[in-house]
Design a protein around this nucleic acid. Structure first.
Length: 803
RNA sequence: GCGGGCGUGGCGGAAUUGGCAGACGCGCUAGACUUAGGAUCUAGUGUCUAACGACGUGGGAGUUCGAGUCUCUUCGCCCGCACCA
């Protein structure tokens, strides 16, 4: 037998697969389909990270198994290539981002190929390709035409020194990542997408999806539906302050109000407010704070009372003060709250700091010590209309009362905010709209798409907060598609999320230039059957793409209301020291090094064997060696074969058990135990005197999805026909996979004292007879009274004794 | 602060979901082969104990014939975040 040389074996089979187009998804729509999906990577300058192959190998295993099970499988990859790091690299090195992108993609592609993923490379896509972003722009235009895109003044992070807008990521602890200068908020008119219009459906439709529970929970909490009321508070100066609350039952305990520093009533009533100086100073402070500071450092409540105006509690008619504080956000509810310090923790803290009155209106706690927020058992007090009622009933009664009196209306609110869709950047999809003095914002005609990114001399954001495109007068100045008059283009670009919100649709039909994907292709392939990705994408990417898909469904462009039927998530791979891999920590492992030293199959086996797929796990070089050792032992089986027969009788049961276990484990993310099963089976083989072709055949079939190269090579060496990847997935006989004789533990008072070998379906009498024959059992039961016997066939025999 | 998750040998992790805790792998120990071993093979390897045996899944309590698994409580760690009224 020759040595196992991974370089030549892996290259050989990669070439054969490519030549034979072994993994191409077929246009034959009569076969059953399967569509597994992995998150396409951002092609960074660092190249592939060892974190990438974990999810990719996992779904590659599923894809390969499905092909062997007779499915037409669509498994594709592409590049999510717009984005900040490339752009910043381009600025720094004065290279066009398109060139940087091209280089990075070439590297990523070569790396993916070297690991042997069974992608259908003919479907590769790239979000920065005009033939791709043409359709991203087309979708945006549909959103715009259906009223789901609108302009709004929104704050951007503004670096006071660089004089550019910054992404959240570029703001570190309130200062600019690059120059360390303070970052402030600055209002800018931006395009927004009304994802909130889909909030209810984005929650409800989760019920029918096969997402892992923590993804569902996290999405639901992020969307944050709450059922409450908007209630109007009159003020002493005649206007109305509207608040949102989920606890209208506590209204008798509303002893003051708080509005956010940005609340419009402040400017509107400048004339009657007597302490505008103090208010302005507080607002300025709030403005200087980044979101991070406002939330993180603001553990102690701060605020300023508005003097000159009071609110009237609509049920008690009491005159109560109005404060401003940054713990109330303009972006949620109405930007104003009725503060009930007795029964809301934040209000309670605020009241304690500023010595505001606390009235107990729900009995059961001690409001002098802390806010009482238990809504299950509380009973209302000090609330004439609802005294003695439980919280839930009190809510219903007071809501009805307030509604009838015209003081309030029931209202559902969501935490979810609309999606800020504008970026003041160059390396993104141009927004295909023009602003016409006569017609307002007008979409470009669809047949004129793509609107390509123009060549600019500098990619640096401009010092007035505009995108680099804003400096290109000849590009900006255009004519209105509607009236033909002079107009100018939108100069902001789309966020990186845009291209990734629909890429799985393009995989279905990637070369179509009539439409983003043909109806037939979509009807056949969609929905994605299994989408695996990182938890960090749960609330943004996953939600955004569900939103876009639902919209496309509503306009009849796609045939399913959800894009992904199943969603799972993998854990991160950490450095050997247990910390997150990063350049600065110096603990980064490059997959190329593993592939060249041990081979792609070793890398694949290792990443699947390393631990629970769903959990984070530290890298370990010595464990990699163990996986290489396993493959070498598999390789050495070639020499051990000493019979032509099918399966050795002594292995029949083991093989059927292994097929069952591995088949199930590949479906349930338990790749580690699947591989452990194969290792154990191999150990059996190595110990055996006789080992046949048939025995090894099963090992190769089961191991092939994880280690595709070496298994093909051994298959060929042993003279089997065709390729492993063309074979049928082995079936197991449930009867043969079952043990009929087992080792059963015999316990005395819950402690194991002996084991007996017994037929699975034996009854208590048979078990007792065998157990009592054991010396240990006799010893521990001698002279004692048997009070109880628990016998669970196939599991346990426990004797409870006394005395 | 809010939301989500995790604590099992020296290490990564198993445990049919309430039934022999530690599968499989790493590491380690001893031996074999060898000029050599950081290659390979064989055996051993949770802790305490000379042994019988006892103890053991972050800590404490509880339910149960039986708890890593269920309940309560407490401590610690990780991830995400937009103080969401």
């Amino acid at each position: 037998m020759r040595d196992y040389s991974h370089e030549s074996v892996e290259k050989k089979w990669q070439d054969i697969w490519e030549e034979k187009q072994a993994f191409k998804a077929h246009q034959d729509y009569s076969k059953p389909k399967y569509y597994p999906l992995v998150e396409f990577p951002y092609p960074s300058g660092q190249g592939l990270h060892v974190g990438h192959p974990r999810p990719y190998t996992a779904l590659d295993i599923v894809a390969r198994k499905r092909r062997m099970e007779g499915y037409n499988v669509l498994f594709a990859i592409g590049w999510d290539a717009f984005g900040l790091p490339t752009e910043n690299y381009a600025i720094k090195n004065k290279i066009h981002p398109a060139i940087v992108t091209e280089q990075n993609i070439a590297r990523f592609k070569a790396q993916c190929k070297s690991i042997g993923f069974s992608f259908d490379w003919s479907r590769e896509i790239n979000t920065t390709d005009p033939n791709y972003y043409k359709w991203t722009q087309w979708i945006f235009i549909q959103l715009f035409k259906h009223g789901l895109a609108y302009k709004k003044e929104m704050d951007i992070n503004w670096c006071t020194s660089c004089k550019v807008g910054l992404a959240n990521e570029e703001v570190v602890n309130g200062v600019c990542e690059r120059c360390g200068s303070p970052v402030v908020k600055r209002a800018k008119s931006q395009w927004m997408l009304k994802i909130t219009e889909y909030a209810e459906r984005l929650i409800d439709d989760l019920d029918d999806l096969d997402y892992i529970e923590r993804v569902k929970i996290q999405q639901k909490n992020w969307i944050g539906k709450s059922v409450g009321m908007e209630i109007d508070f009159k003020t002493t100066t005649g206007e109305v302050l509207r608040v949102y609350t989920t606890r209208p039952d506590t209204i008798y305990g509303a002893t003051y109000m708080v509005v956010s520093p940005e609340h419009p009533m402040i400017d509107e009533r400048k004339d009657v407010i007597t302490n505008m100086d103090a208010i302005e100073a507080y607002r300025e402070q709030a403005r200087l704070k980044s979101d991070f500071e406002r939330t993180e450092l603001n553990k102690d409540k701060t605020g300023v009372p508005i003097e000159g105006v009071w609110a009237i509690n609509p049920v008690t008619e009491a005159r109560i003060p109005i404060w401003i504080s940054d713990y109330v956000l303009m972006s949620y509810g109405t930007g104003a709250i009725m503060a009930v310090p007795g029964h809301d923790t934040r209000d309670w803290e605020f009241a304690k700091v500023f010595d505001l009155p606390i009235i107990e209106v729900v009995a059961g706690g001690d409001v002098e010590k802390e806010a009482f927020t238990d809504i299950a058992d509380g009973v209302l007090i000090n609330s004439p209309l609802i005294d003695g009622l439980k919280v839930a009933d009190a809510k219903a009664v007071i809501s009805k009362y307030l509604e009838e009196k015209g003081l309030g209306t029931p209202k559902v609110n969501f935490k979810l905010r609309d999606w800020v869709f504008s970026r003041q950047r160059y390396w993104g999809e141009p927004i295909p709209l023009v602003s016409c003095p006569e017609c307002g914002w007008v979409a470009l005609p669809e047949e004129s798409l793509p609107l390509k990114l123009p060549e600019v001399s500098s990619y640096e954001p401009t010092d007035n907060g505009e995108s680099p495109l804003a400096a290109m007068t000849d590009w900006i100045e255009t004519t209105c598609p509607k009236c033909g008059g002079p107009a100018h283009r939108e100069t902001d670009t789309m966020p990186q999320w845009a291209g990734s919100s629909w890429y799985f649709l393009r995989y279905c039909d990637p070369h179509n230039d009539e439409t983003f994907a043909s109806k037939e292709a979509l009807e056949y392939w969609m929905p994605v059957d299994w989408y695996n990705g990182g938890m960090e994408h749960t609330t943004l990417h996953l939600l955004y793409s569900r939103f876009w898909h639902k919209f496309l469904f509503d306009i009849g462009a796609v045939n399913t209301k959800e894009p992904y039927q199943k969603r799972t998530s993998h854990g991160m791979i950490l450095g050997e020291n247990g910390e997150k891999m990063s350049k600065s920590r110096g603990n980064v492992v490059n997959p190329d090094d593993i592939v060249s030293a041990y081979g792609a199959d070793t890398l694949r086996v290792y990443e699947m064997f390393i631990g629970d797929f769903e959990k984070s796990v530290p890298w370990s070089d010595s464990s990699v060696k163990g996986c290489r050792r396993f493959l070498e032992r598999v390789w050495s089986l070639v020499d051990d074969v000493n019979a032509e027969e099918a399966v050795s009788p002594e292995f029949e049961r083991d093989i059927h058990k292994a097929i069952k276990k591995v088949t199930e484990d590949y479906e349930t993310l338990k790749f580690n135990t699947a591989i452990a099963t194969l290792m154990a089976l191999l150990n059996q083989y190595k110990k055996a005197e006789k080992i046949t072709h048939g025995d090894i055949r099963y090992m190769l079939l089961l191991l092939n999805p994880v280690a595709p190269h070496i298994t093909e090579e051994i298959w060929e060496m042993l003279g089997f026909e065709g390729m492993v990847c063309e074979q049928s997935w082995p079936a197991y006989d449930p009867e043969k996979a079952k043990d009929d004789v087992i080792e059963m533990a015999v316990q005395i008072n819950g402690k194991v004292r002996a084991t007996i070998t017994i037929e699975v379906d034996s009854d208590l009498d048979a078990a007792r007879e065998k157990a009592m024959a054991e010396e240990k059992v006799q010893q521990f039961t001698a002279g004692k009274k048997i009070v109880k016997e628990i016998y669970v066939p196939g599991k346990i025999y426990n004797i409870v004794v006394k005395g």
